[in-house]
């Protein structure tokens, strides 16, 4: 009997209908959490000077965002509205603790490098914002997809920024991982050694890109590009 009703519900709402797909793709462009909703800039910009930690943070945020949405959505009818913030925070904090311990166990160097920023996923406004705006009012499966979509939208911006900063700031890509590639720099470790090269003697890596401020400039420019392509997003104030 129970199985029957589940099946009926599935017939009414296809697992990957148009709406569900929109939930996944919307946050990647028109409703991007960072450039449009302006949420979650806090915790992770300081880690974008290298690609590897940004990738780790992005995966962690996708995980936390998806599962906190799922859990909140499952218990949403049992949460009294006065204490909902605290309940949401406890759910998020437990998931982040899981991520923190897993990272500590499997990749200690990256854990050390990220230090407080893993813990700061708790106060990442995207997670909290999606719980408040979506998961408290929608069914579990959709909330789960919404969580994944927003996590990915956030991760996409993070990785774009990190790639730009690492390539131009350090002349490498994926430094610290097995995939490490070193393109250009002033020693023999790099593919092009600017000290000995005939063609690239003039080049040196841009130290501005290593500074935190560079992340702000790059995101500002990304917003500029996105808004000039899509005038709907321009704010009037």
């Amino acid at each position: 009997m129970a199985a029957n009703t589940v099946q009926e519900a599935k017939v009414q709402e296809p697992l990957f209908g148009k709406k569900e797909r929109k939930l996944l793709t919307d946050p990647l462009s028109d409703n991007n959490p960072i450039t449009v909703q302006v949420l979650g800039i806090c915790s992770a910009l300081a880690v974008t000077s290298l690609v590897l930690p940004s990738l780790v943070i992005s995966i962690a945020v996708v995980f936390v965002c998806a599962f906190s949405s799922l859990i909140t959505s499952l218990v949403r009818n049992a949460i009294p509205s006065q204490v909902r913030m605290i309940v949401q925070l406890v759910i998020i904090a437990s998931l982040v603790t899981v991520v923190e311990l897993a990272l500590k166990a499997f990749n200690y160097p990256v854990y050390k490098q990220l230090s407080v920023y893993i813990g700061l996923i708790i106060t990442n406004c995207i997670v909290m914002g999606r719980l408040e705006a979506f998961a408290m009012a929608n069914k579990p499966w959709r909330s789960f997809l919404d969580g994944i979509g927003n996590g990915l939208g956030y991760g996409a911006i993070l990785i774009i920024v990190a790639v730009i900063r690492e390539v131009f700031g350090k002349g490498s890509l994926f430094a610290g991982s097995p995939l490490e590639m070193k393109f250009i720099g002033a020693s023999d470790d790099y593919m092009i050694n600017t000290l000995t090269s005939d063609w690239f003697g003039w080049y040196s890596n841009n130290n501005l890109m290593v500074l935190p401020a560079a992340a702000m400039f790059i995101i500002g420019i990304l917003i500029w590009i996105q808004r000039s392509r899509n005038p709907k997003l321009v704010d009037i104030s």
């Binding site: 450039t35 500002g220 917003i223």
Partner: peptide, 11 residues
């Protein structure tokens, strides 16, 4: 116009 508000705040 596209830079107004948020974009400018970032820069």
């Amino acid at each position: 116009p596209a830079l107004r508000g948020l974009g400018m705040a970032f820069i």
